[in-house]
Design a binder for these strands. Structure first.
Length: 111
DNA sequence: TCCCTGACTGGTT
DNA sequence: AAACCAGCCAGGG
């Protein structure tokens, strides 16, 4: 059960699945949550391989540092932004307002 | 085992 | 503020 056999990808997906609606997390935060302090890039790479899971995973709640949409400029980026806005996520200067929607106390406060 | 790729990040230019 | 650069991590060939 507590299978450390679970791959890195699965762990990442598990964390992403836990991100509440209307909230977002950065690649770096997710990496830290799965136990890899500087695996932000690896997380992004993992999300790139979600494939069919895409329909069951809130991948749109994952953004770059400072609330940047890494997928910006691509079709998926547009979808991500649209979904986030649909969840009530506020954008400031083209980026997600992390102080308001950040998952971790990196910028969450004064609700 | 070495080399390359990539939904990243932080620091310099 | 935007472009550049170097560092880091997990797969795949």
């Amino acid at each position: 059960m507590s299978g450390p056999d679970e791959g890195f990808f699965e762990r990442v997906y598990a964390v992403v699945r836990r991100i509440p609606r209307g909230r977002v997390a950065t690649y770096g935060q997710i990496a830290a949550l799965v136990g890899v302090t500087r695996g932000a890039r690896a997380v992004g790479w993992a999300l790139g391989g979600i494939g069919p899971r895409k329909a069951k995973l809130p991948w749109h709640r994952v953004v770059g540092a400072r609330g940047r949409i890494s997928l910006d400029g691509r079709a998926s980026g547009l979808v991500q932004r649209k979904r986030l806005r649909a969840e009530g996520v506020r954008f400031v200067g083209g980026r997600v307002d992390m102080l308001r929607h950040g998952l971790l106390p990196k910028g969450r406060s004064r609700g």
